Computed example of a mutant assay.
Amino acid sequence: MTRTSMETGRMSLLAVHGIQGTSAAWSSVAQACATQAHVICPNLRGRGNALRGQAPQDYRLEAFSGDLAQIARQLDGPFILAGWSMGVSVTLEYLRRNAGPQPCALILLSGTPRPGLAPWFSERGDRLLKEIAAREKRLKLAMAADHQAVAWTWEGLQDVDHSAALADIQLPTLIIHGDADPDSPLEHARWLSEGIPNAELHVIAGAGHSLLTENTAEVAQHINAFIAKLHHAQERP
């Protein structure tokens, strides 16, 4: 995959899915951005064909960011790190821990610096597993994470707060959010955009949480324009 990126001159975009999604969540946007970037969409542990954890600690953000670092080390040249929903939290944790090669820019969609305050789930135990199944249907996830993996992941997100670390992010950052998002209300995007010095926020009117699949064209338009701007900046003498 690295060779393809180098041969075409396209920038790599490492795209991270959400708490219940898999790499398939990015498929439509990846296709729409194929001329601008070589998009790599891995499955986090407990999703798709990735390894399975055996206990709650296997699904902490620290573990996810470590997995992401292994993938990033296989890339050659500059890359953009992108996250949707919980993928934003994984991205922020990756940066906070300086876990691997550092990206040249960020793309954050439908995310939050404080996932424990996002109303993704409210139940516990067996009721949580049923709630996870219901949310999976509501978000129309064709491919979804193991329910137990989601439950353990949610448990590990409760006390996460990346707010204080946002000011340390000195990277061009594109934030895309829907103003009708019930899972990460718009104020969560404002926390991100106001905390990251070089962030630009684009709000999609009437859009909910599933931006990647329900607002593919507009999301891809913003991402392609952002990547073009990065290319232009790199070409300056």
Rank of each mutant, 00 (worst) to 15 (best):
M11V: 10
S12E: 06
S12G: 10
S12R: 12
L14I: 14
L14F: 14
L14T: 06
A15Y: 01
V16P: 15
G18A: 12
G21V: 03
A25Q: 05
W26M: 05
W26P: 02
W26L: 05
S28P: 09
A30Q: 08
A37W: 08
H38W: 10
R45H: 15
G46T: 10
R47P: 07
R47G: 04
R47M: 10
G48E: 15
G48N: 09
N49F: 15
L51F: 03
A55M: 14
Q57S: 15
L61E: 03
S65D: 11
D67G: 03
L68N: 09
Q70S: 14
I71Y: 03
A72S: 10
R73Y: 12
L75T: 00
D76R: 11
G77T: 09
G77A: 04
I80R: 02
L81A: 13
A82V: 01
W84G: 00
G87P: 15
G87N: 10
V88W: 08
V88N: 04
S89E: 00
V90F: 00
V90H: 01
T91A: 10
E93L: 07
L95W: 06
A99V: 01
Q102M: 04
P103S: 01
C104T: 10
A105F: 06
L106E: 01
I107E: 05
S110M: 02
S110N: 02
G111W: 01
T112I: 04
P113I: 09
P113N: 01
P113E: 09
R114Y: 04
R114M: 01
L117V: 10
L117Q: 07
W120I: 00
W120D: 11
S122A: 13
R124T: 15
